[in-house]
């Protein structure tokens, strides 16, 4: 049991418990808070995987911006008792659980059955420098397209949220 593994298991436990909280809390605000915790755990996983830049982006975008958006949305649409804002759908509850379980075990089986490549030497170079080279080199077009997508999404979100003028 290396320290690394212990850290991983702790982080994994935090992520999974927080995720269960997201789908289990009856109060949507609690779900949102658990979601932030889950996002932070995922960011920690990224740090452990030598992806410090992505981890920072995860914290900024998910734990920061996306979560805030969720909370605002919850605030705008909450019209009843906060304790009953996140109820289960009785029709799909059990079948949904079975399907999720089957899917998870299927994926786990796939992970076990597949012969994965051995871990290679850890990457020694400057990951951020290489990421920048890739983003602005090989993937420059996709990068610019993503920028345009974001712009369009923002404009679309404003129009949708604002509603049509009478």
């Amino acid at each position: 049991m290396s320290l690394n593994l212990i850290v991983f298991l702790l982080i994994a436990a935090v992520i999974l418990v927080a995720a269960v909280g997201v789908v289990a809390f009856k109060n949507i605000v609690h779900s949102a808070l658990a979601l932030i915790l889950s996002f932070l755990g995922v960011a920690a996983v990224y740090f452990q995987l030598d992806a410090g830049f992505i981890g920072l982006v995860q914290i900024l975008v998910y734990a920061g911006a996306v979560s805030v958006l969720f909370v605002f949305a919850v605030m705008l649409v909450m019209d009843r008792d906060a304790g009953e804002t996140n109820l289960v759908n009785p029709r799909t509850r059990w079948i949904g659980a079975i399907i999720a379980l089957l899917l998870t075990s299927g994926l786990a089986a796939a992970v076990y059955l597949t012969k994965w490549p051995q871990m290679q030497e850890p990457f020694a170079g400057d990951a951020v420098r290489q990421l920048a080279g890739l983003l602005l080199g090989d993937y420059a077009v996709a990068f610019e397209t993503a920028a345009i997508l974001l712009l369009i999404a923002v404009v679309g979100a404003i129009i949708l949220a604002k509603g049509a003028e009478e």
Binding site: A19, N89, G96, A100
Partner: peptide, 13 residues
């Protein structure tokens, strides 16, 4: 994590 997400998609109202 994915399985938990699927459950949430399928069961929340």
């Amino acid at each position: 994590l994915f399985g938990i997400g699927v459950y949430g998609v399928l069961s929340r109202r």
